[in-house]
Amino acid sequence: MLPWINLATATAPQGDTLRLLRRGNEFSIRLGDGNELMNSRLGGSEEALATLALDHLAGRPAPRVLIGGLGMGFTLRAAQAMAPADARLIVSEIVPELVGWASLHMAEVFGDCLSDPRVEVRTGDVGEAIREGTDRFDAILLDVDNGPGGLTRPDNDVLYGEGGLRAARRALTAGGVLAVWSAAPDDGFSKRLARCGFDVSARTVRAGRTKRGARHTIWIALRIGE
Rank of each mutant, 00 (worst) to 15 (best):
G15C: 14
R136A: 11
G127A: 15
A167G: 05
S201R: 15
G164H: 06
G176A: 07
N39D: 13
L114S: 13
R131H: 07
I29R: 00
A221S: 13
D86R: 11
G208T: 10
T173W: 08
S40F: 13
P117F: 04
R122S: 12
R170C: 02
F27Q: 01
L89A: 04
P117D: 01
I5Q: 15
R136S: 12
I67W: 01
E97R: 11
N39Q: 12
D125P: 11
P148W: 12
A12H: 00
E120R: 15
E108A: 11
S103A: 13
D199E: 14
D186C: 09
S115W: 10
R77C: 03
T204N: 14
V91Y: 00
C196V: 05
D55L: 10
I67M: 04
K191L: 14
V95Y: 06
G24E: 13
S28L: 13
L20F: 10
G100S: 12
A167C: 06
M1T: 11
T210K: 07
L178P: 06
V158K: 14
G188A: 13
P3I: 03
G197V: 07
S103H: 12
D143W: 09
V177A: 00
R64V: 08
P117C: 10
G176V: 04
G43P: 00
L98T: 07
A53N: 01
G100L: 05
N39Y: 08
D125T: 11
T173I: 03
R88K: 13
A207W: 03
F137P: 07
E128K: 07
A102M: 12
R192P: 04
S103N: 12
L114Q: 11
H105W: 11
A58E: 10
E226L: 06
Q80H: 05
L104R: 12
R192E: 10
G175I: 09
G124V: 10
L7W: 04
F137M: 08
E26L: 12
G208M: 06
G34K: 07
L49C: 04
A167F: 02
L20W: 09
P84M: 07
A12R: 02
E162K: 14
R60A: 09
W4D: 12
A62S: 06
G111H: 04
E120W: 00
D125I: 01
G71N: 00
A179V: 06
E120P: 01
P84Q: 09
L49W: 01
L31V: 02
S201L: 00
F110V: 05
Q80L: 15
P3A: 10
D33Y: 06
R166H: 02
R206M: 06
L141R: 08
